Simulated scan of single mutants.
Amino acid sequence: MAIGTLTALPVPAPHTIDRRVAGRAMLLAPIAALPLAALATFIVLCGQMIGLPALATAGLAVGAVGLASRGLHLDGLSDTADGLGASYDRSRALEIMRRGDSGPTGVATLVLVLIVQCGALAGAISAGHGSTAAAVAVLAGRATLSLCCARGIPSARPEGLGATVAGTVAIPLAVLAFLALTALAAVAPGLAWWRAPLAVIAAHLAAAVLLLRCVRRLGGITGDVLGACVEIATTAALLALAP
């Protein structure tokens, strides 16, 4: 479930999808995202090897990760922005998010976030640690899914991906996953020991802020909200690693 949801890799469908399976899938999100991190790292290294400009390399890496995840999180970011920006009525906002088309708020948010991601990764490439920054940001962004699906976080709808995964991750496990990734990040190559952990923390703080806003405005999470949190978290991680 984790690989099939978060990547475009062809894997067999899960035999059973229940709340236990969903919770484990959200905990395994960073591991399922390892192919995406490897792809981003490979593109950055290739771009540096052939002498591409840092911004062009960053754009290729960000675009490849988006394609390799079927644009799922980018679509969620756009729909969430439209829902939050269009109406203070909860039902109206959820209906706008359900439609699937993109309004001006969603498009503007999507463009802005992608620009920031590419600019931040280009800064990391120019600073000499672009490949590590790309990998850490991809993994840190997906790791926030356990936070977003922790116990106590409700679903905004009675159906859909949000309803399947909402509240499925025990809080101690969500904390343990965060601490484990933060500790592993300390040994990320090419960075001071504190840089990558700082990026993981920044990713979770950014996701928490958006999550809190969505819970207050929408009444809980949806699949779109999860995607938006991943993209915002990835952006925060890249910004922390940009200099």
Rank of each mutant, 00 (worst) to 15 (best):
R142Y: 12
S131V: 12
A183F: 10
H129M: 07
I153Q: 01
S102P: 00
S146Q: 01
H73G: 05
A177S: 12
A196S: 00
D79C: 06
S91N: 13
A93D: 13
A166S: 06
V175F: 10
L181S: 05
L139K: 07
A134F: 11
G190D: 00
V187W: 10
R157Q: 14
D75I: 11
G167Q: 01
S102F: 03
P189S: 07
L110E: 04
A108T: 14
C148V: 06
G100C: 08
A163I: 09
R98D: 13
H73I: 05
L211Q: 05
T164I: 11
R92A: 15
L147M: 14
L181Y: 08
L198A: 12
L121K: 12
S91H: 15
L210N: 04
L173V: 02
A188W: 05
L139D: 12
H204C: 06
A150Y: 02
E159N: 06
A108L: 13
L205G: 08
A108G: 04
L184G: 10
L77M: 08
L77W: 06
I171F: 09
P189R: 04
A166N: 01
D79W: 00
I171R: 14
F178S: 01
A133L: 11
V138T: 12
D101M: 00
A174N: 03
G83D: 13
G167V: 02
I115N: 09
L145S: 04
A203C: 10
A188N: 02
L112V: 15
V169Q: 04
V111G: 06
C118Y: 01
L112F: 14
A150K: 01
I171D: 05
A199V: 01
L191A: 03
S102L: 09
G76T: 04
T144H: 05
W194K: 01
A177Y: 00
C118V: 14
S102Y: 09
L147Q: 15
A81K: 02
T80H: 04
V175Q: 00
V165M: 00
S155M: 07
R92D: 13
L147C: 03
A174Q: 00
G128C: 09
A143G: 15
V136T: 12
F178I: 01
A177G: 10
T105F: 04
T109C: 15
A127D: 08
A186P: 04
A177C: 06
G76K: 00
A166V: 08
S131M: 12
Y88P: 14
A180F: 11
Y88K: 14
P197Y: 02
S126C: 12
M97G: 04
L181Q: 13
I153T: 11
D101G: 04
